[in-house]
């Protein structure tokens, strides 16, 4: 590239913007679960593709960081590949698909199966940061409800679920109370991952680009999923093991194989699955005696 040509600043955003976002992040960390407004920028990708997460990542990433990006737990889907390529290009940082090697993990939907450590930061892409939004449309009112800790409405939603479906049917974006104070929407992660947020060693940052909000869960913070005494919070369970690596007690995706009802259940976290297979774990579909049958 010729020296005359305009070029990007490190990690795309200019330094003043990063500074503004870092301030919002610091404030978010000091008030766990509180949504801090910030001046979200236009990013070279459409809203809904993770513009909030990308801005948070761009503000905290340094030349020595190792970045991992996942979408629905997978490292190889369009969204993950594009964002990873974006940071390779504009920040020239090392990237990885291995959870344990990454210092920053940007995610949509999933928290990696492998336990995160204290040197890692998990950045969530958030579409709708306000957990009360579909119950109370007025932003002025929801802010007041947060300020005065009026969270009865959240339980009205859960009550309604039980009344209609006989159980709390919310399976993703399941509301949590952070540090005993703010009710927070953990973005569209499955409720399976909610317990992983509780007392996590890693810093968790949430960025909502279109809604212009940043919030955070600092390490070792209490994150409690809301429930009723007689209808306690439960995570999803799966009858099958992963068809490829035989993992049990992990979050599985259902993959339709043909139009005759064939299907397989496979780890949603691709890195976890690959790692297990490298270590010799084999699921039903890859077992040697099965291969001959197919």
């Amino acid at each position: 590239m010729s020296a005359d040509l305009a070029t990007y600043n490190f990690a795309y955003l200019d330094e003043q913007t990063k500074r503004m976002i870092r301030r919002a992040i610091l404030k978010a960390i000091s008030i766990p679960g509180y949504q801090v407004p910030f001046a979200s920028r236009e990013m070279p990708m459409p809203y809904g593709w993770g513009t909030g997460g990308v801005q948070v990542t761009a503000s905290i990433i340094g030349p020595e960081d190792v970045l991992k990006v996942i979408d629905q737990g997978a490292d190889d889907t369009t969204n993950a590949v594009s964002i990873r390529a974006f940071f390779q290009k504009v920040a020239n940082v090392a990237v990885t698909t291995h959870t344990k090697d990454a210092t920053i993990i940007q995610t949509r939907h999933r928290i990696p199966e492998q336990k995160l450590g204290e040197n890692q930061v998990l950045v969530y892409q958030v579409p709708i940061p306000e957990p009360l939004r579909f119950l109370e449309p007025r932003e002025t009112e929801t802010r007041k409800m947060h300020a005065l800790e009026e969270y009865g409405l959240m339980h009205v939603k859960l009550y309604e679920d039980i009344a209609i479906n006989g159980r709390i049917s919310k399976t993703y974006a399941y509301p949590v109370k952070v540090d005993g104070r703010y009710v927070m929407d953990p973005s569209p992660t499955p409720k399976f991952d909610n317990p992983k947020m509780h007392m996590s060693d890693a810093l968790q940052l949430f960025g909502a680009g279109r809604e212009k909000r940043i919030y955070a869960v600092p390490p070792h913070t209490e994150v409690v999923s809301l429930d009723f005494e007689d209808y306690p919070f439960e995570i999803q369970t799966f009858e099958q093991d992963c068809a490829l690596c035989g993992a049990h007690g992990v979050y599985l995706d259902e993959v339709v194989l043909d139009d005759k009802g064939g299907r397989m259940f496979v780890c949603s976290d691709t890195d976890h699955c690959e790692d297990r297979r490298e270590h010799g774990h084999v699921g039903a579909m890859l077992a040697p005696n099965q291969e001959a049958a197919e």
């Binding site: 009026e150 009865g152 409405l153 339980h155 009205v156 939603k157 009550y159 309604e160 039980i162 009344a163 209609i164 429930d227 009723f228 005494e229 007689d230 209808y231």
Partner: peptide, 21 residues
């Protein structure tokens, strides 16, 4: 948009009632 039961129960939940039954 929420059921009659939830309408009546809202105030109870707002003051900290957490037992569905």
């Amino acid at each position: 948009a929420v059921s009659a039961g939830a309408n009546v129960g809202e105030r109870l939940m707002a003051v900290g009632d957490r037992h569905y039954g």
